[in-house]
Nucleic acid binder design. Structure first.
Length: 107
DNA sequence: TAGGTGACGGACC
DNA sequence: CGGTCCGCCACCT
């Protein structure tokens, strides 16, 4: 067990608190972990998440309010789009979505 | 050991 | 608005 593995578990725990139909950003998750400025590490933690998973990873998007579309995800970005549409969140063809309207506010 | 990379974010032009 | 540039930090050659 390493400290990094503990970090992953913490990320998953916070993401698991996001209600259906709500959205959070990578930076927001990092901030809730007390790791301000470590948004990229949150992205890595989700990348290491084995799919399928009970963790609602699809509810995490970037601060621009868009799904991060990159080939390195090998299709999980489109899977994310499908899952969000299933929860009633409209997603445009370019991955943009109404983040302000669906933003998750913890506490 | 050093350097490049990326599921980010914010400042700048 | 959007394209670009840095700063950020863990991971992989």
């Amino acid at each position: 067990m390493t400290a990094a593995a503990g970090f992953d578990e913490r990320v998953y725990a916070v993401v698991a608190r996001i209600p259906p139909g709500r959205l959070a950003t990578y930076g927001q998750i990092a901030e809730l972990l007390g790791a301000w400025g470590c948004a990229r590490q949150v992205g890595w933690a989700l990348r290491r998440l084995p799919l399928p998973s009970t963790v609602p990873w699809h509810r995490v998007v970037n601060a621009a309010g868009r799904i991060s579309m990159t080939p390195s995800r090998e299709g999980s970005d489109w899977m994310q789009r499908t899952l969000l549409l299933a929860e009633g969140i409209p997603v445009a063809a370019d991955g943009s979505l109404p983040l302000a309207r669906h933003r998750w506010q913890p506490g």
